[in-house]
């Protein structure tokens, strides 16, 4: 298991917390809550070690479009980058 964390500047307040997904094979769980500052904070626990660079690219891409000041916690069980992006978008939509 590997732990990763990323921070991004954020301009939009988040309306409500939301939870999506499951820590099952090829899937992940996302907990999204309003953060206390004008930043987005992401912490990740993933079952697959050594993919920090890929995670960074996925997060960079997501936060190039998402401006929410959210604290995001991810529990990952081997999801593909596409799956991670879908879950993040699902969580972002649920928090609006």
């Amino acid at each position: 298991m590997e732990k990763l964390s990323f921070d991004y500047p954020a301009s939009q307040p988040v309306q409500q917390r939301t939870h999506v997904g499951v820590v099952g094979s090829g899937d992940l769980e996302v907990l999204l809550e309003p953060s206390s500052d004008e930043m987005a904070h992401v912490t990740i626990r993933t079952s697959v070690d050594g993919f920090g660079q890929i995670w960074k690219q996925v997060m960079d891409r997501f936060f190039s479009r998402y401006q929410g000041a959210a604290t995001i916690e991810i529990n990952d069980f081997g999801a593909t980058p596409g799956m991670v992006m879908l879950r993040l978008e699902q969580a972002a939509e649920g928090s609006r």
Partner: peptide
């Protein structure tokens, strides 16, 4: 006791296993 209560297993991370926020 939903996911945001974060009542997860304290034992799984110690063994390198990713826990779930509601312990399933």
């Amino acid at each position: 006791l939903g996911p945001f209560e974060r009542l997860e297993s304290p034992w799984l991370p110690m063994q390198g296993v990713v826990p779930q926020s509601d312990d399933g």
